Amino acid sequence: MNALYAVLAVAAAGIIPGAGMVHAEIPEVVKIGGIFEYNWAEGAEGAAISEMAVEDFNAYLENIGAGWSLHLSSEDTQSSGSVSLDKVHTFNGAGVKILVGLPFSQYIVQAASYIDRNNMLVISHAAQAENLAIDDTIFRLVPHDGYQAPAIAKMLEDAGIEVLVTVARADTWGDGHVAGVRERFSGVMEPGLRYNTDAQEFSVAVGVLDDVISGLVERHGAEKVGVLYVGNDEFLPIMQAMRFYENVSKVRWFATNTQSFKTYFFEDPVAREFAEATQFTTTRSIVSSDNRVKDALDAKYMEMYNATISTYGYAAYDSIWLLGLTILQTQSTDTETLAGAIPYVASHMLGASGDLTLTEYGDLATAEFEVWQVSDGAWVQVVDE
């Protein structure tokens, strides 16, 4: 028995009274569909960790003599909301009603009505838009961004920023994040760059941004102007485009937790120079440091991939175990039954993310954030004095 399976088996035993019973309503193989963003580092991570979770959960089922197992079939969104929706259609057509993944909020917006009409069930490991906190059968094992916005506002204000420019994705998540910060930031927010998520070339838009920053620096002083980036791995080509402009790096840059601990700030020379010049600073979502499930998963993942895990990776792992334990608890794969039981099971479950208690809308109820900054080629925590 591997260490991680042993830890999770102990954690699960307290909430599963039916171990070893015959489960007439559960098929021998329970099929789950996975829809992941392989072009996003945390998306590929989520897919790999979900497979690990299925393997570990199936070992648990075999040990208790459950008589059934999980099978995960994963598909790539190809960085497209329409492709993601097509995958939802395909899984439903194949009779697969239970899905994990769907990492971006915009993908959920596009698929939500179809999911509802067809009685499907989703647990997302990464979609965080605040406006998705509604009563539906789409659960999110991450806190929505309404929790992060105050942490971002405090990060900005602690840095002495009085005028904020935003650079954000033009989608549900990006727009929602900017709106949330606007509600909570005490300074002035100026329009900056709102870019299409499928954009490949940024030089013209960055030229406009450079002019905006130049004007703000002239009026307010560089030390009072900051830029908040709300996006994913497309920040690397944006930084590549910015190297040809002089004003964008004269002010401090900040970002949401999606940029924390990104390795391209050290692996790419342009990104490294930009991060050092702008004292690049982010929020970082954290989980409990004394979580035995997290510690065991960290050790296994490091051994397999020589890498650390993001908070989205922990959520992906927990998604599989939460689904599996709810199926075991209810002795059913009916999505309506599962949707009704998931909040109860989650409230009694310790996952890699820690306490999995959900809000009334099915989102992770707890959130903690730290502030980290790139300094001398490393991520350094910013501690309040």
Rank of each mutant, 00 (worst) to 15 (best):
E303S: 13
Y195F: 14
K154C: 02
T166P: 00
S84P: 06
L99W: 10
K262S: 08
L358F: 10
T258K: 04
A47M: 13
N247E: 14
I342N: 01
I342A: 00
I342H: 02
G65P: 04
V165L: 00
S113I: 13
H177E: 05
L8E: 01
D268H: 12
Y344W: 15
P27G: 07
L72K: 04
I15R: 11
T357E: 10
D233N: 13
F202R: 02
Y195V: 01
F266P: 02
A365R: 11
S260H: 10
Q110Y: 14
E234Q: 14
Y5W: 15
L364P: 01
S319Q: 05
Q373D: 06
R140I: 04
D295A: 13
F139L: 04
Q329A: 12
R219L: 09
A48S: 13
M1C: 08
S214C: 11
G377N: 11
I138W: 03
D290W: 11
Y305F: 14
S105C: 07
V29Q: 13
Q110C: 07
A296F: 05
G231Q: 02
M189C: 06
M189R: 07
Q259A: 05
V29N: 12
M1E: 06
E51A: 11
V374R: 01
N119M: 12
V10I: 13
Y264N: 07
K224W: 09
E368Q: 15
I16A: 03
M120S: 05
S347F: 11
T326V: 08
S124G: 08
D145I: 03
G221K: 12
D76M: 06
G146S: 09
V181C: 00
I152M: 03
N118C: 08
Y264Q: 07
I327G: 00
A94T: 15
I32L: 08
T172F: 02
V165H: 00
G146K: 05
Q128F: 07
E276D: 14
P343W: 09
G160H: 11
G34C: 05
V208R: 13
G46V: 04
D355Q: 08
V7I: 12
A179I: 01
G146A: 07
E157P: 02
S214P: 06
P269T: 15
L350K: 03
Q240A: 11
G174T: 05
W40D: 04
A352C: 08
T77H: 04
V167L: 01
L132D: 01
K250T: 11
S84W: 06
F235V: 09
E273H: 13
S289C: 11
G362N: 03
Y107I: 07
Y195S: 00
M239C: 10
Y361R: 10
V227F: 00
S73H: 14
W173K: 02
R219E: 12
G187Y: 04
Q373G: 03
A341L: 07
I134C: 09
T77F: 03
I213E: 00
A151V: 06
L236Y: 13
E267F: 11
E246L: 11
M302N: 15
K154W: 11
E190S: 03
L156C: 03
L8M: 14
D290M: 06
A352F: 04
V167K: 00
N232L: 10
H220N: 03
R184P: 00
G95Y: 15
Q259G: 02
